[in-house]
Design a protein around this nucleic acid. Structure first.
Lengths: 148, 148
DNA sequence: TTAAACTACTTGCAAAATGCAAGTGAATTT
DNA sequence: AAATTCACTTGCATTTTGCAAGTAGTTTAA
């Protein structure tokens, strides 16, 4: 079992890293059109059900969502929790590793502000906070997300 | 010609944005496994030829490289320059819009430092600078990249 | 001066990823 | 007890990727 499972790990995991560059490694994890949106939703909401993700404006399809949640969980960026009141619901939330992505999302928002129009209201509000005190905003938000 | 080209623009450009969220918009532009590596190379080198990109450790395939360069140029993240001494070479460099991605790359590097091992030497050197004075590093690097 | 080598790409094709619609089975509500 | 909700899965067509080989202009070496 030990041997079999580690063999399986070796054979099945596509962890033939292209390089040790952290940009490259990061892209292999969340370098697609959807992963960071899942992470964004969790930054805003702290906890989401599967259905919450499906409700997001960008309309991820359900099979892609399931696949992304699985790899993000495997890579320990998010974790599953049991729902306090319902057995049929599942809660997802960010781990420390996931929460630490916040500064990246903040910088993407700042870049987006410069080069895109018609930002959503919640982004405008967020950016207003960020520009008053970036470090403070990040600390505050990380504390809010912190695992209890 | 006016009508035809704008019609073509309307029909061919896949600019049906999923949403106005800057995260989502950014991902539609460089949310793949390769674009940010091209941008990274240009942040380090200021100017690269087509062949320079192909030489990078991650070994992008030539058709993907051509496709990414084209869309990054269309989106005005990079621009083409003629090579000072050779007619057969082409130089690529970042525009202001591209240079402004630097803070995002810096944060990805900082995140990567926490969660990956065996970082390349140049990343370690970069991070050492960044951690002494993040704003200073970004200003310095942006100035270095600035279009002459 | 001409052939070989180098440049920035393009093309063809197989394999993988994506996106849509329709299921499935367990838990919950009516 | 039936209908609805929940978190997924499955099947399949379309799109994107990745590999290998090719091409046309440019530069180099004989």
């Amino acid at each position: 079992m030990h041997f079999a499972s580690s063999l399986k790990f070796i054979l099945m995991s596509k962890d033939k890293k292209r390089s040790n560059c952290p940009i490259s490694c990061s892209l292999e994890l969340w370098g697609d059109k959807w992963s960071l949106l899942i992470i964004r939703d969790l930054m805003f909401a702290k906890q989401c059900t599967y259905g919450d993700f499906l409700k997001s404006e960008e309309k991820i399809s359900t099979n892609i969502l399931a696949a992304r949640l699985k790899t993000l969980e495997q890579q320990m960026v998010i974790e599953k929790l049991e729902h306090p009141t319902s057995k049929s619901k599942v809660l997802y939330q960010l781990t420390k590793k996931g929460i630490d992505i916040l500064p990246i999302l903040v910088e993407i928002n700042l870049w987006g502000e410069k080069y895109y129009d018609d930002l959503p209201d919640r982004t405008i509000a967020l950016l207003s906070d960020v520009k008053k005190d970036k470090k403070g905003f990040i600390n505050k938000t990380m504390k809010k997300l912190d695992i209890d």
